[in-house]
Design a binder for these strands. Structure first.
Lengths: 180, 180
DNA sequence: CCGCTTCTATAAGCAGCTGATATAACTGAC
DNA sequence: GTCAGTTATATCAGCTGCTTATAGAAGCGG
């Protein structure tokens, strides 16, 4: 149920999917992928939201919190305001978030000797461990789901992994050179 | 916490890994997919969280709100408690959510003539329009991203769409036969 | 020193979730 | 019919996590 995703599509013109998709929202139609493809992707992302919510263990960690911790793990220490900009929250919001992380021992504040105003945030060993634990939990749940899928479906997902990864990297971008 | 309705918890094998990302994809393996594959997927999902946050326009709509509205659009009217179970929030939470939707004219309550206790929720024309608008906005942003990707990457994403869709459907499950 | 900018912290408020509980409607025994 | 038990929704108090507005401390040019 839920929408026939098994149409032909491919790369040509598909069903009109509503109206003038992506008409005014930037990026000319000629430049990006097919309009219909993009709308389909947007729809799939919407549906996948539900999956994400289910996969998120009740650690009491918000999406932003996890994303911040993962970022600190992946890309190293950031100054606080930089972190706020990268994760798309306000600076006071990030101050609170970091305070929470610090209270739970998952990250810690550090001063910048070169600039007394700056607070540099870095992940702790406990924070790294927390991420790993969470990742393994999620993997466990995913494992159960994937087991029910035919092999070709699993292969399709695997193949798209690196692409999704590249997409994610493109969006988050480099932390504007600093925190070195 | 949570409803406790969908506590699958997979095989839970998946030991440490974390670094070894070798092995072929799609091998049977009783647990369902290679361990490393699953961990890679879990990691990609983590990273994709950032993408989701960025793609979500500042409509002031929570993930749950959007998912609920999309569900009502896809699968038709649901009773309130059914909606709560499907989206993984408590019944009081869904009562509030629906009240919010109703106040903004995106959904409406309806009585069930066969059962006076029941409240059936259905999406309004304005609600459908809201979803479409949001989807188009998202599509616009995605379009810009996809334009930078090589064609083969776009194809990989397109191919994985239906699989992701199937995954989402598997997790949320049918609304237990109603919404007639 | 002073004024201006930059970076973080604090305060007040709102959204959105939770558990506990109240209210109303259906069901079955009698 | 009435009573008790179950089911479906609403309401209440409380917490988390975000927001805007503002305060305070540190750097920089005069």
């Amino acid at each position: 149920m839920a929408g026939g995703a098994a149409d032909d599509s491919g790369t040509g013109a598909v069903d009109d999917t509503g109206t003038d998709a992506a008409g005014d929202a930037g990026s000319g139609a000629g430049g990006g992928g097919t309009d219909a493809d993009v709308v389909r992707l947007a729809t799939a992302v919407e549906r996948f939201t539900r999956v994400l919510r289910r996969l998120t263990a009740p650690d009491g960690m918000s999406l932003t919190t996890v994303a911040t911790l993962v970022r600190l793990d992946d890309l190293g220490p950031h100054r606080l305001s930089e972190l706020a900009a990268a994760e798309g929250v306000t600076q006071p919001g990030m101050t609170q978030l970091v305070s929470r992380l610090e209270r739970e021992g998952l990250a810690q504040r550090r001063g910048d000797p070169a600039d007394g105003r700056v607070v540099v945030v870095e992940i702790t060993a406990a924070g790294r461990e927390s991420i790993l634990r969470r990742r393994r939990e999620r993997a466990g749940k995913l494992s159960g789901l994937l087991a029910d899928l035919p092999a070709e479906d699993r292969a399709a997902i695997t193949r798209s992994l690196e692409v999704l990864d590249r997409l994610a990297g493109r969006l988050s971008g480099p932390p504007a050179g600093s925190a070195g």
